[in-house]
Simulated assay, not measured.
Amino acid sequence: MVKFMRLPNLVKHLIFEEMKLNEILLLSFCSKQVQKSIKQQYRLEPNKGFRITCSNKDHRTYYHFQDGDEKGLELIVDHKENDKELIYWKYVDKFDLLKKYKFLNGVFIKLKSGFIFEKNGLRFECSICFDQKSGIPTLYFEKDMMKKWPMELHKYCVDLFRTTPDLEMIMNLDDSSDLHESQTIKNLYLHDSCESLDPEIADEFFEKANIQNSFSTLSQKLDWTISDDSKLWNIPNLCIYSYDWVFARQLTQFTGKNAYLVVKDHNDIAQSMNEFLKHWLNSDNTKLETMIVVTYCESTEKLFDGIKTSKWDPERRQARYVPNAPFERIFENQNRTSYTFVNTFHSVYDYLDCTNAFDIVRESDGLLASVKVHDGVFFMFVWHTRFS
């Protein structure tokens, strides 16, 4: 190791360029001198964040080669096929750390035990094995590392590779016990699950997870809706495709920018949406941009009861709404064998066309919104810029 540190900077730079990212990460654990050298000679492209991924525990996607307790850290490249897997880990009992072999992917893999390193003042002991095809390492820790390792590893990688601290997570909702009491996450995606959970689990999770940008779930079921005072309502971008999470009457709690929600059936959804529009008209909410709600709302008469509306005037706004940013992606199970990021709203219908929408204007600040209903789906677009 001393000889390595004495190599000329150009040679060391070339060595790092030839190594895989997970190899550089493991090498950095050797000593503080190696860490310093990596920081000086190697840097990731700017704005490349990291993602912590937890394996799906749902029985529909649980195959013999999957480990439901395994978690991993990836480098986000483009949310497609190019994201780079860095390292995986699992928490086991003390006895399992001492085992020399583990049955993995249908074959016995030799574990290297007694691997110890210190990081950020914490001492970690683990066993390690390497995937025979990819070479990606998997670390086996004692369970008391559960709340310490993932976030410490993330902070460590941000510092080591000198990149953005943004963190994404893909997880099962009941994995929230792994988090610290307060954890900042940029984007959170939930795995599909046919298991129905107590909504208190969701409320407790949003109490300690500070989600800065977006939250999405495709089919995580709850026994009942989340509470009116849940911190979920403060997340800037929401995509909840499961109808168990929210009532239409709760939409007035939303303080973010964009929401795409499937609401739980209600006795009079049109009335609830009417109350939502009146709430916006009488509020000082300048954040809201888009609200799309999958409902059974068909009566525009009741929807606009007591609200002054007007038809499209090309002098007041353009015909087609242009969102500031596309709807956030969701993490979708495809054919129960693989996952991919997909666009939130699937429709051949041009839902951004507002030529047939009804316009409403908030008197306090003149902010204009276009509202329409198509096939039972409620659309509301707030025109912060009327002409692009």
Rank of each mutant, 00 (worst) to 15 (best):
W312A: 02
N258A: 06
P323L: 06
M273P: 00
E315P: 02
I360W: 01
P326Y: 04
H346Q: 13
K278A: 05
Y296M: 03
Q334E: 15
S299T: 11
R329G: 08
R336I: 09
N343Y: 07
Y349V: 08
C354F: 06
D359N: 06
N258I: 05
G306L: 04
Y321K: 07
Y296L: 03
N333Y: 06
N285P: 02
W280C: 00
F304K: 04
D268R: 08
H346S: 13
V293A: 02
R317Q: 06
N267I: 08
P314C: 06
N267G: 13
K302G: 10
N333A: 11
N285C: 10
L303D: 01
V294D: 11
R336V: 07
R336F: 14
N274L: 04
P314E: 10
P323V: 04
K257A: 04
E328G: 11
F327S: 12
E332D: 15
M273S: 02
V293H: 00
N343H: 14
I292K: 02
N274S: 03
E301I: 07
R317I: 00
D284G: 12
F327Y: 13
F341C: 06
I360R: 07
Q318K: 11
I307Q: 05
Y351T: 01
I292N: 00
K264C: 07
S310C: 12
S338Y: 12
Q318P: 05
D305T: 10
L281H: 01
S299C: 12
R316M: 14
D359G: 08
V322T: 14
S272H: 12
K278Y: 05
N324S: 15
V342S: 13
D359E: 10
S283M: 05
